[in-house]
Design a binder for these strands. Structure first.
Lengths: 222, 222
DNA sequence: AAGATTCGGTGACATTGTCACCAAACGATG
DNA sequence: CATCGTTTGGTGACAATGTCACCGAATCTT
């Protein structure tokens, strides 16, 4: 992947005017970052707005009590809205972004971003749509954290993390961070799922045996 | 309050170029809405972006299980970011905005908003700062809902709702919606605060007796 | 092979959420 | 004023979840 013409690969950017795409291509740098890197976090504000070309970034937060929770993920074709937000508002991050895979991203300088927002209605719509989606997703997350039962949330998360595969490489500890709960809660719930024959467990992995049953629980609303 | 020159009254807008302020003043309509009105919600998307000149709007969400939770409030000088978001992203609202007081607002048509974002760097900064603040506040709320103890959250909320006064006109039910919990939980916790001599209760009101003690609990982080 | 670390299991208990009631206060109405 | 319905808040039992203090087994390091 050379990075040339990357604007054409994503629906949100391909509809930009040719000269707008040209500015993006000319004035941004394509960078590669290895998995595990913290690309932004407290005391580490990037100079540029990142547009993710390949890979995924996990955004999570650590509370003052030491509890962690995953807020969302950024995938290829998405911009890091929090980066954008903090670039523009001069605020400290309250969250950190960790590369879950090796990633490739376009680094767009602040001034270029501002110029594009001013010049291109399509780019404005892209940016505001990203903000909007992020906020409404956070609304849904608040609803889930506040009101959804843990078994439903865990079933939901297992389906989401499986990505169509039947085996998930993760630990109880990592799952507890995904949902903002305690490791013991995950252990008990997975035992219950196993007792029902919906999953099988190994050290560091969970195998989905009955995806339909899990999806049924996840789909329930109360 | 005539509404003339309202742009000058708010720090975020007063620094706009005079011609930008002129566009805002000329192309937006100042409207008055009585307390209790739902200014936006599912199936009720406003045509305009609202900029609040006076009063406050409570934004809350009802889950599919019927549980309610207050997400945030919009006060004078703030724009309704969710309105903005949905104007620009064509999405359905997942939340509703209810006037807590009689309000006065400037209704800015979508096209005018877009024009201002394109023309004025100061306006862009204002809008993105509002989005950024909203998102980081939602991060804090997720952290609080997921990890903070209920007594701390309630003490915090009582201080916030008091607005410096020593008497709060509210019900246990309303407080439970503020925190996304059950009425019984609020009742028990308020009884405990009363037992400690921190508050006194009347039907439909809570009187703060020992604000310092409440603030101390609210300030604790674990 | 030995020691350290990670991973997961377990029981006891505290906190919070849910449910099914109840009674008192309040408001509307005749 | 008397009555009725609604709102508000109190209560106990129980379920779900969070917290704490452990433990042993698997894995990794050296």
């Amino acid at each position: 992947m050379t990075g040339q013409q990357w604007t054409a690969r994503f629906a949100g950017l391909a509809r930009l005017a040719p000269q707008t795409q040209q500015i993006l291509l000319e004035k941004s740098a394509v960078i590669d970052v290895p998995a595990g890197t913290t690309i932004f976090g407290p005391g580490n504000s990037p100079e540029n707005m990142l547009f993710l070309l390949d890979g995924s970034v996990r955004v999570q937060q650590t509370s003052e009590t030491g509890h962690e929770i995953v807020l969302y993920r950024i995938h290829a074709g998405q911009s890091c809205v929090l980066t954008t937000a903090c670039l523009l508002a001069y605020e400290d991050y309250s969250a950190e972004g960790i590369c879950e895979t090796d990633i490739q991203a376009a680094a767009i300088p602040r001034a270029v971003f501002d110029e594009l927002v001013a010049q291109s209605k399509e780019f404005r719509d892209f940016v505001f749509a990203a903000f909007s989606k992020r906020i409404t997703d956070l609304f849904l997350m608040i609803d889930e954290v506040a009101f959804q039962k843990m078994d439903v949330r865990l079933a939901d998360k297992l389906i989401a993390l499986s990505g169509g595969q039947d085996s998930i490489a993760t630990t109880h500890q990592k799952l507890s961070v995904e949902l903002g709960t305690a490791r013991e809660v995950i252990s008990r719930q997975l035992q219950e799922f196993q007792r029902r024959g919906w999953i099988e467990q190994g050290r560091g992995c969970v195998n989905l045996i009955n995806r339909t049953a899990l999806a049924g629980l996840a789909g329930q609303q109360h």
